[in-house]
Design a protein around this nucleic acid. Structure first.
Length: 777
DNA sequence: TTAGGTTTAG
């Protein structure tokens, strides 16, 4: 008899298995072995409806789990039954029963693997000589004898189209919308969840609990929930769910094929194989019936005027004021726009100082408001968050020419706005953690250290060469170095430096991705490079110098005329402006250089719009002097000019009178710098290009003030237009999202050079005499 | 009780 029912009495089978059969372990199964006298034993966890194959043969599939090895990574296997055996078995088998099969075949198919299931399946049929034994429990009988036999307590789940006012039900649903738990105006946390099921009926539930853990752990639209004991009420003509006594929930990942592991805080819950099946069916239904948004937005993909959800890690937080709170987060990618920095007191900022400094180019400030403040305050540094419906807003301060990106989590909970803490077990968190670990901090910062090594031979630029051409068949228009032919990258990296080459390569990647970060200040005297000071540095110095009142003895001299006034502020700030004259005469504002004492950032910025040059100064006993050289010593149009702290020897302002006396003073920055003893810093682009060809790859540095992009490095920081132009150029040279094979070819000149220190000699490469062709952008 | 989905306006 191929299928036998063996009754168990007091844990023992009435009829023992034939003694010649030996039990086999799931993990030892192999295709091609003989299993005539071996058997597999396990619990039936899943069964599929009996179907017929094309040739009419009955086919029945079940999943059997090895209950003795539940912890084993592979603890279940698919069993395929054919013919009469399939038909017989389908009639009597029940979930949770013990299933034994002897004399089966082991088949391995490449696509068999599912979760913790064996990558082989068992083929079972009378023809193959299989025997099946099924242990049933006392008091239960086979389905062929009596219908609906149930061992475990059974819950009844109501489809969403069958809900009735005033009832308490159990239900399943796919999350179509949710608000992550937030602090309600009452005493509890609240979470709003809208579900939908195969009936296509929606149900919005208001869930309340004083304990965050009792609310469903929903992380994204598409998650599947099971609610037990939810009360149904009618509200505004529609059914509504609301928590009632004994409410309990399980949440599952809604992804087809993901492990069916419930998220719950409850230690005790029932979860049967039937319910696993329900989840799997809902997943499949949802895959084609619920619009689940595409790939998650990363900071690198943020667009202005966008509301987006961000999965990130918290690295800093700070109190801002009563109604807003600052979160500093990162996701390992760089926002392509300059991002705002919310000013906070240093002592209010919580987080690892060193890490915050290392991540200063990657972390972004998110300002959260109102009802989100309390939750934000309770967040732990280092935790992983999903922040829902962040508003990316492009804005520019009235004393800034270049806009920046702001991130706000506005007050209220519309559109699911809120903050959720993700557990480390969350698959998205696992993926993010791996990615964050791959973003080596030293790498993201190494532009600064490497660029310091660029040798001093730079500057020997001759004729500008049109070298980039972006067709598939690349060619170069050469107006110089005609003698150079293309050299393969491998040859270059195998050769000694210094040498010059012409190359044909693809730009695989470049740094920094945030192009405005490529702008640095370079001192041609000491060859140092430094970051361009930001507005805050300047503001800080101006605040400091505002404490020194203008010295009246220095007003109205032979070469300048002075005006003073007191700002109507609490601190009674004194401001003096000195207008440089020529031949005792004041000039037109657009030709005039002015010096200002006690001005604010905003006032100075406004003056630069009207006057040719502005020099911030302060009084000493016997002359006006420049401020600290971290501040610009001269502002002219949009450009702030800085001096090298190391190489400058600032001189009194009266030295300017020699220029003022000229017939037609042009007020050139170089000339002003010279008479004031300032070693002028030059704005330069410093970038690292990773170039590849068929033979290899190398990193070449771009060190350029204007030639390469045809954009003055000194002006790019204050011009949206120029920043866009530069971005377009880079997008043309290295189109985002393009595979290596599809990248355009480009030609350029590079030169190799040695950098030696006490320990070693290193060869570097630098792009030179290369200009992006006009038709590129 | 709370919220009852449908973006702040900082």
């Amino acid at each position: 008899m191929p299928v036998q029912l063996l009754k168990i009495i007091e844990g023992q089978s009435e009829t023992p298995l034939p003694s010649h059969l030996q039990r086999e372990d799931l993990k030892h199964l192999q295709e091609g072995c003989d299993y005539t006298n071996k058997y597999i034993q396990g619990i039936v966890t899943l069964s599929y409806p009996l179907t017929k194959l094309r040739d009419g043969t009955d086919f029945f599939k079940i999943v059997v789990q090895d209950s003795d090895n539940l912890c084993s990574q592979i603890n279940s296997i698919n069993v395929f039954m054919y013919g009469k055996m399939a038909e017989d078995c389908a009639k009597i088998i029940r979930h949770g029963e013990t299933f034994i099969v002897a004399g089966f075949k082991v088949i391995k198919l490449p696509t068999e693997r599912e979760d913790a299931r064996h990558d082989c399946h068992l083929e079972v049929s009378e023809e193959a000589g299989s025997t099946i034994y099924i242990y049933t429990k006392p008091g239960t009988t086979a389905a062929s004898e009596t219908a609906s036999v149930s061992v475990a307590p059974k819950y009844v789940y109501t489809p969403l189209n069958h809900l009735k006012d005033g009832t308490v039900v159990n239900l399943y649903g796919v999350v179509k919308f949710f608000k992550p738990p937030y602090i309600s105006k009452g005493t509890d946390y609240c979470s709003i969840v809208t579900l939908v099921d195969q009936s296509n009926v929606k149900l919005t539930c208001s869930l309340f609990s004083g304990n965050l853990d009792f609310l469903p752990k929903i992380y994204k639209v598409g998650d599947i929930v099971r609610f037990h004991r939810i009360k149904i009420r009618e509200y505004n003509g529609q059914m509504q769910g609301i928590t009632s006594g004994g409410f309990a929930s399980l949440t599952f990942d809604g992804t087809v094929g993901a492990p069916v592991v419930p998220r719950t805080s409850s230690r005790v819950y029932t979860f049967m194989d039937e319910e696993q099946k329900t989840i799997e069916e809902l997943r499949i239904w949802a895959a084609s019936n619920i619009s689940i948004s595409g790939p998650a937005t990363k900071l690198s993909g943020v667009q202005p005027m966008l509301f987006f959800d961000l999965t990130c890690q918290l690295v800093g937080k700070a109190k801002v004021d009563g109604s807003s709170f600052l979160l500093k987060v990162w996701d390992g990618t760089e926002c392509p726009y300059p991002t705002w920095k919310v000013p906070v007191e240093a002592q209010d900022l919580e987080g690892e100082k060193v890490l915050l400094h290392q991540l200063r180019n990657l972390a972004v400030d998110i300002l959260v408001y109102d009802n989100h403040v309390q939750l934000a305050e309770s967040l732990k540094i280092g935790s992983f968050l999903r922040i829902y419906s962040i508003h990316a807003k492009e804005a520019s301060a009235d004393n800034e020419d270049v806009s920046h990106m702001e991130f706000h989590l506005h007050g209220g909970t519309c559109y699911g706005r809120g903050i959720g803490v993700l557990p480390e077990s969350n698959p998205d968190v696992k993926e993010l953690k791996e990615f964050l670990e791959s973003v080596t901090l030293t790498d993201s910062q190494n532009m600064e250290s490497c660029s310091m090594d660029i040798d001093s031979t730079f500057g020997n630029v001759t004729v500008c060469v049109m070298l980039f051409h972006l067709s598939v068949y690349c060619f170069a228009v050469l107006t110089d170095h005609q003698d150079l032919s293309n050299t393969e990258l491998k040859t270059i990296t195998n050769s000694a430096a210094p040498q010059q080459y012409r190359i044909r390569a693809k730009l695989r990647t470049y740094k920094p991705q945030k192009l405005h970060q490529s702008v640095k200040l370079h001192c041609s005297k000491c060859n140092s490079l430094q970051e361009v000071p930001d507005r805050d540095d300047f503001d800080f110095i101006l605040h400091g110098s505002a404490g020194t009142a203008p010295n009246p003895e220095l007003h109205n001299t032979s070469w300048y005329e002075s005006v003073t006034w007191t700002a109507q502020e609490q601190k009674q700030r004194k401001i003096a402006i000195h207008f440089v004259k020529r031949d005792e005469m004041l000039q037109h504002p657009e030709d005039t250089l002015i010096m200002i004492e006690g001005g604010t950032l905003k006032e100075i910025w406004k003056l630069t719009k009207r006057f040719k040059c502005v020099i911030p100064v302060r009084s000493t006993e016997d002359d006006l002097e420049l401020l600290d050289l971290s501040a610009p010593f001269l502002l002219k149009g949009n450009v702030k000019y800085y001096g090298c702290k190391q190489c400058s020897t600032p001189k009194p302002m009266k030295n300017l009178s020699s220029i003022a006396a000229e017939q037609q003073p042009s007020w050139e920055s170089t000339e002003i710098a010279q008479v004031l003893g300032i070693e002028l810093l030059q704005y330069v682009f410093i970038m690292k290009f990773t170039l590849v060809d068929e033979t290899g790859s190398l990193n070449a540095y771009l060190f350029d003030d204007e030639k390469f992009f045809q954009i003055p490095a000194s002006e790019i920081l204050t011009s949206n237009f120029l920043q866009q132009k530069m971005q377009m150029t880079m997008n043309a040279l290295c189109p985002p999202g393009r595979k290596l094979g599809d990248l355009p070819w480009l030609e350029c000149f590079i030169k190799s050079y040695n950098v030696r220190d006490a320990m070693k000699n290193q060869v570097y490469y630098q792009i030179f005499d290369t200009t992006v062709a006009e038709d590129v952008v």
